[in-house]
C-alpha cells in the first residue's frame, strides 16, 4: 500500500505573509472607495431626476464635514488606484514594439501616468469652460 499522503497547507491569511501581497490587497481595496463614490453619484443623479429641491438637498449634503472627509478619502484611494493601474501595465498589457524594440516598462508606466494627469487637467478645463 502506498504511504503517500500529500499535505495541503491552508490558505487562510495568505495575503499577510508577504509585503507584495499586502500592497496587492491595498490596491484591490481601492474598489470599495470607487464603489462608494459611484453610489454617491448615483444618489445625486436620482436626486437630479426628482427636481430642483431634491438636487439642492444633495448639493447641501455634499457640503457636510463628513462628506468632505469621505471625499478626501475617495480622492486618496482613487488616486492610488490610478497610480497602481498604470504601474501594472507592463504586466497586464501586450508589449509595445517600437522600431523593433520592446518599449521599456518605465516608459509604458510613465506614459500611463502622464495620460492620467493630462486627462484630469482636460476634465477640469472642460468643466471650467461649460461652467463659465
Amino acid at each position: 500500500m502506498s504511504k503517500r499522503r500529500p499535505y495541503v497547507r491552508p490558505m487562510g491569511g495568505w495575503w499577510k505573509k508577504n509585503p507584495f501581497y499586502v500592497e496587492y490587497m491595498v490596491h484591490e481595496s481601492t474598489a470599495l472607495f470607487v464603489a462608494a463614490y459611484a453610489i454617491t453619484l448615483l444618489v445625486g443623479l436620482v436626486r437630479l431626476g426628482q427636481g430642483e429641491a431634491a438636487w439642492n438637498g444633495w448639493l447641501e449634503a455634499m457640503k457636510s464635514p463628513l462628506s468632505i472627509v469621505a471625499h478626501l478619502a475617495f480622492l486618496v484611494a482613487i488616486a492610488y488606484h490610478a497610480f497602481t493601474w498604470f504601474k501594472l501595465f507592463p504586466l497586464t498589457m501586450p508589449p509595445i514594439i517600437v522600431n523593433g524594440k520592446k518599449l521599456e516598462p518605465e516608459v509604458v508606466v510613465g506614459s500611463g501616468w502622464t495620460a492620467a494627469i493630462l486627462a484630469a487637467l482636460a476634465l477640469l478645463g472642460i468643466v471650467w469652460r461649460i461652467a463659465a
Binding site: 470607487v34 463614490y37 454617491t40 453619484l41 445625486g44 437630479l48 430642483e52 438636487w55 439642492n56 448639493l59 455634499m62 457640503k63 462628506s67 468632505i68 469621505a70 471625499h71 478626501l72 475617495f74 480622492l75 482613487i78 488616486a79 488606484h81 490610478a82 493601474w85 498604470f86 500611463g112 495620460a115 492620467a116 486627462a119 484630469a120 487637467l121 476634465l123 477640469l124 468643466v127 471650467w128 461649460i130 461652467a131 463659465a132
Partner: peptide
C-alpha cells in the same frame, strides 16, 4: 476611474462643496 476618477472626486466632492477654484453655480440645477 484611473483617468478621470481623482479629478471627478475633487470637483464634485471637494471643490464644489467648498467653493474652491470653479465658478459658483458650476453644478447648479
Amino acid at each position: 476611474a484611473a483617468l478621470f476618477g481623482p479629478m471627478l472626486v475633487f470637483i464634485t466632492g471637494v471643490a464644489i462643496p467648498l467653493g474652491l477654484l470653479l465658478p459658483a453655480g458650476t453644478m447648479s440645477y
